[in-house]
Design a protein around this nucleic acid. Structure first.
Length: 936
RNA sequence: GCCGGAGUGGCGGAACGGGUAGACGCAAGGGACUUAAAAUCCCUUGUCCGCAAGGGCGUGCGGGUUCGAGUCCCGCCUCCGGCACCA
């Protein structure tokens, strides 16, 4: 059925590559037979090894005959993936008596293909999952798909493919790629957010939050993305632009549903202190984002009217210096207080601001401009009447949307006052110095100091005055101490099709009515006119919109927006626990068993949005009695990007590696010979610097890809994709393979020698190796557990493999020869340990090795090797001899040598005497087992 | 501007509470095997002076503490990330 195109570089995942054929073999009634039989059967059925791979010896090995001449991942990997799946080795919950561990990676949005950035995250998670399973944990390690979202909808507009169809196809592809990486997920837990079985509980949670007053309808200025044609949450606006498509964002008045995340602002902030296993920078970013600011609200009555202006300030101590006030152009009072004489100018200004892009408006370099409203307000502290202006730099959504302006002590106010010739009054003097005069100020004095020109408060320090003035305001009923947050409520309505319908109705008689729980899910209609014009597609689906009111039975209209997809991903970690539950989002007992997530791995780009919502929802779910935890994630790992060189030609744009030529130091475009700009950038199709996992599997196999992802750098750093580095990892696996092969004929003997090694019978070389082996186990465990330093753990394994050379000299002694038997015992121990330690890193390889060694069971289910702390150190150490801090000699001494002995050996050494000759020794510093420093 | 983080060979990166800087891998050079190439294996590889033995200098820069500093302290520089007219 497949076409007969060759293997030449076709990227089509359906291309009949060799292992594809292996995977598609459905004759797996064989799974109950020994895997070696299965594997040979697979191989010959696939026509792979014996007919076409030049690296194999010709001929068909008989079942039971062990290893192939060369390491061939293409053959090994599909085999073990089938075995794991058939034997259900990665399923959680099989051992309720064991301690649990929930390892989670941020689930993907299934775009067409998995890329290396994805692979890296999953490989890190999988390593931890596999490692801890070998330590006897009941590991919960699920995977699913974040399936709603704009890209599918945009693609639908472009390519006329239904988002659902496209998404499901992508998931299919993606899932296949995940499986080919050998990731140990419990696939029975899979969730797909665009399925009604999932999103009905988005709706359920929305309704519960509505009941709790955590959801409200608002009609305010929303962030409208001119590219995506929908409103965005505050978090999705980056530098005034859409974080997704970079289009300008403009204010637009669209009614939406908002979640009252601000009600949890303080709790979310305090909770940060408990997140000791989160990266510092993520905690800091969240702290900044929540942006708690303690201050004071003050009321300024308008002259000649009952109305008053409320302002928020952190500098109540400067209130006597407030010489004018400024409202945001959108402030509701503006229209009412503007005098007829100023109306024209004010209206013009307000309208201009309404059209201004957020990016332009909030650009710090934008000049401050404003218009006088004609109104005056009364400063209740100084007793003065001061003018009320509107200006571009005052934001409607922060504080009260109005400020008191103190030009002498606030830089913005200062600039504004200078520009419009507004009065400046100095009311704070630097401590210990006289207050300057307003006329000689060149910039605002913004620090705390001593009050001045402030009536009864003169002479007080700023901090004291702030407290007193706030208290005074409160006692007069004109404000008082208050707290403000940078965090805003989370608007979740999106004017798009591909998302969760919002379960709310508008009834002509009853007003806003929630959809009753028993009517959930409100299903997304299968078809809707997806036009991308900015109107909600659902509003044009008459049979969706028109419904009956559940309370009065009269006609009602459904809400036609869909939810922000961050809603979906805010609680998915809990749905995995109980993904088929039709009554509740998940069962409380399952939550109590597995939550919180012990280790969560994902990109730092989610430091604020996703992770803040995650924490918010966890608290909401706690208040709904769904979970018993406060924080969803105990330990967070933010991994770096996968980057690779990109080449950009001034006239031909980004060039693929095949389109560049090396010319000495320079790299040139193969078309026009122009020098190219070389940069390290995140892999992407558009920059032509990507490496597809498919290509990796094809060339080196999943184990090598996994190994490289872990070896290239520690998790939090970016890794630079290096084809040579990948080849190096492949080479390592091949060397281990060759090592096993060299000792193949001994496997039968090794298997029988499993008792403890008797050091006394080992040669000095083997004794040193024995200790290195124990030390390696210690290092690998420590690197994984404490530091997440997988790169150094792999380095340790490489060293161990290199050290195994000592066994090459092993001569065949009979089993009666005690020394030879001990050496073989050690060899067996080493090979088995190496195989098992590799299991979390290169799992297919490890299984194959384990099987070849003739060991029963599966490598991934064995206990991780353990070490004897007494044996992790060498008994002969290299002692460094320094003279005045400079290294002059290295000495081999017994580790346990007494201090006097060490001093004697060191001082009598010829190389040392050369430096100490004829000089008095002032001091001898001895660090046992390490060094001796002779100070002259 | 504010808040984080990082600067180590030709490259990616090591160095547990201050104790041989450069583990491990890549690249490079030399050699072995081969009719040849590939693959594989062995050796060398921070830098400068030296035939060598040996020595000098080296972890962004300048100081300091210490017998001893990549690591600790003070002052800078550069790069990356986040926030940014938040009152």
């Amino acid at each position: 059925m497949h076409d007969l195109e060759g293997h030449d570089g076709s990227q089509n995942p359906e291309d009949a590559g060799d292992e594809q054929r292996l995977l598609s073999l459905e004759h797996l009634g064989l799974l109950s037979s020994p895997t070696s039989i299965l594997y040979h059967k697979l191989a010959s059925e696939a026509g792979l090894v014996w007919s076409c791979a030049p690296c194999y010896k010709a001929g068909t090995p008989s079942p039971g005959e062990a290893m192939l001449e060369k390491y061939h991942p293409k053959l090994i990997e599909p085999k073990w993936q089938k075995v794991w799946e058939a034997e259900g080795l990665h399923r959680a919950g099989a051992h309720p008596e064991r301690p649990k561990l929930y390892v989670l990676e941020m689930f993907p949005y299934p775009s067409g293909n998995m890329h290396m950035g994805h692979a890296r995250v999953y490989v890190i998670g999988d390593l931890l999952a596999r490692y801890w399973r070998m330590h006897g944990r009941d590991v919960f390690h699920p995977m699913g798909f974040d399936a709603f979202g704009l890209p599918a909808e945009n693609a639908a507009i472009r390519e006329k493919i239904h988002p659902r169809q496209r998404t499901l196809k992508n998931i299919e592809t993606f899932r296949g790629q995940l499986k080919r990486l050998g990731l140990s997920y419990d696939w029975e837990r899979e969730i797909i957010t665009c399925e009604p079985e999932y999103y009905r509980f988005n709706q359920w949670l929305f309704l519960k939050m509505y009941e709790k007053g955590l959801v409200y309808r608002r009609r305010s200025l929303a962030n409208w993305c001119t590219g995506c044609l929908t409103i965005l949450a505050n978090e999705q606006v980056v530098e005034g632009r859409c974080e997704r498509c970079q289009s300008p964002v403009v204010p637009r008045e669209i009614p939406d549903w908002a979640l009252r995340i601000t009600r949890y602002a303080d709790e979310l902030l305090k909770g940060l202190d408990t997140l000791t296993a989160w990266p510092e920078r993520v905690v800091t970013m969240q702290r900044n984002w929540i942006g708690r600011s303690e201050g004071c609200e003050l009321t300024f009555p308008l002259c000649g009217g009952g109305e008053a202006i409320r302002v928020f300030t952190t500098r109540a101590d400067t209130v006597f210096g407030a010489t004018y006030m400024v409202l945001a152009p959108e402030h509701p009072l503006v229209a009412r207080i503007t005098t007829p004489a100023q109306r024209g100018a004010v209206q013009e200004f307000v309208q201009r601001m309404a059209r201004t892009e957020r990016a332009v408006r909030t650009d710090e370099k934008a000049t401050k401009e404003g218009v006088f409203t004609g109104a005056m307000a009364h400063n209740p502290f100084s007793g003065e009447d001061i003018p009320v202006w509107i200006a571009n730099f005052v934001l409607a959504e922060y504080g009260t949307g109005a400020v008191m302006s103190v030009p002498a002590h606030d830089q913005r106010d200062f600039e504004f006052a200078k520009k419009y010739r507004l009065p400046i009054r100095v009311v704070i003097a630097p401590v210990g110095r006289p207050a300057g005069s307003a006329t000689e100020l060149t910039q605002a004095f913004v620090e705390d100091g001593v009050l001045h020109n402030s009536g009864p408060h003169d002479g007080k320090g700023s901090a004291q005055a702030r407290r007193d003035i706030a208290a005074e305001a409160r006692s007069r009923g004109q404000g008082g101490p208050t707290v403000n947050y940078h965090l805003r409520d989370w608007g979740i309505s999106r004017q798009r099709y591909w998302g969760t319908p919002i379960p709310m109705l508008e009834c002509e008689r009853c007003g806003t009515v929630p959809v009753p729980y028993e009517q959930l899910p409100v299903r997304l209609p299968p078809e809707a006119p997806i036009t991308g014009t900015g109107e909600s597609p659902l509003s044009k689906v008459a049979e969706f919109v028109h419904t009956t009111c559940p309370s009065c039975g009269g006609p009602a209209r459904r809400d036609t927006d869909t939810m922000d997809t961050f809603f979906d991903s805010s609680w998915y970690f809990a749905r995995y626990l109980d993904p088929r539950n039709e009554r509740l989002p998940f069962d409380r007992a399952a939550a109590d068993r597995y939550l919180p997530v012990d280790i969560y791995i994902g990109g730092p780009e989610h430091a604020v949005m996703h992770l803040l919502y995650f924490r918010f929802f966890t608290r909401v779910m706690r208040d709904l009695g769904l979970v018993g935890i406060e924080e969803p994630v105990a330990r967070l790992v933010t991994q770096g990007m996968v980057v690779r060189s990109s080449y950009r030609c001034p006239s031909h744009g980004y060039r693929a590696e095949s389109g560049v030529v090396q010319d000495g130091e320079k790299v040139r475009c193969s078309e026009c010979r122009a020098a190219l700009e070389v940069r390290l950038e995140k892999m992407s199709k558009s920059k032509h610097n990507g490496v597809s996992p498919e290509a990796m599997f094809e060339q080196y196999g999943a184990d090598t890809a996994r190994l490289f992802c872990l070896f290239a750098a520690p998790p939090e750093k970016d890794i630079e994709w290096s084809d040579a580095g990948v080849a190096g990892c492949f080479g390592f696996l091949r060397r281990v393979w060759a090592l096993l092969l060299r000792h193949q004929e001994r496997f039968d003997v090794l298997r029988t020698l499993d008792g403890p090694v008797d050091e006394a019978r080992l040669s000095p070389e083997l004794k040193a190796f024995h200790r290195l082996l124990h030390h390696t186990i210690e290092r690998v465990r420590r690197d994984i557990e404490r530091e997440f330093q997988f790169n150094t753990a792999i380095a340790a394994l490489m060293e161990l493999c290199n050290a195994c050379k000592v066994f090459d000299a092993l001569t065949a002694g009979g089993p009666d020869d005690a020394a030879a038997r001990e050496a073989l015992r050690l060899l067996g121990f080493a090979l088995r340990s190496l195989a098992l330690m590799l299991a979390p890193f290169a799992p297919h390889f490890a299984e194959e090795a384990w099987e070849a060694l003739g060991m029963p069971g599966r490598a991934c289910q064995q206990p991780f090797p353990s070490f004897d702390p007494k044996l992790t150190v060498q008994d002969v150490v290299t002692l460094v001899v320094q003279v005045n801090g400079k290294v002059r000699a290295n000495l081999e001494v017994p580790r346990a040598a007494p201090r006097e002995e060490i001093e004697r050996i060191a001082l009598s050494d010829e190389r040392v005497r050369k430096w100490t000759e004829g000089k008095a020794i002032r001091r001898l510093v001895v660090v046992p087992g390490r060094l001796i420093n002779i100070v002259l």
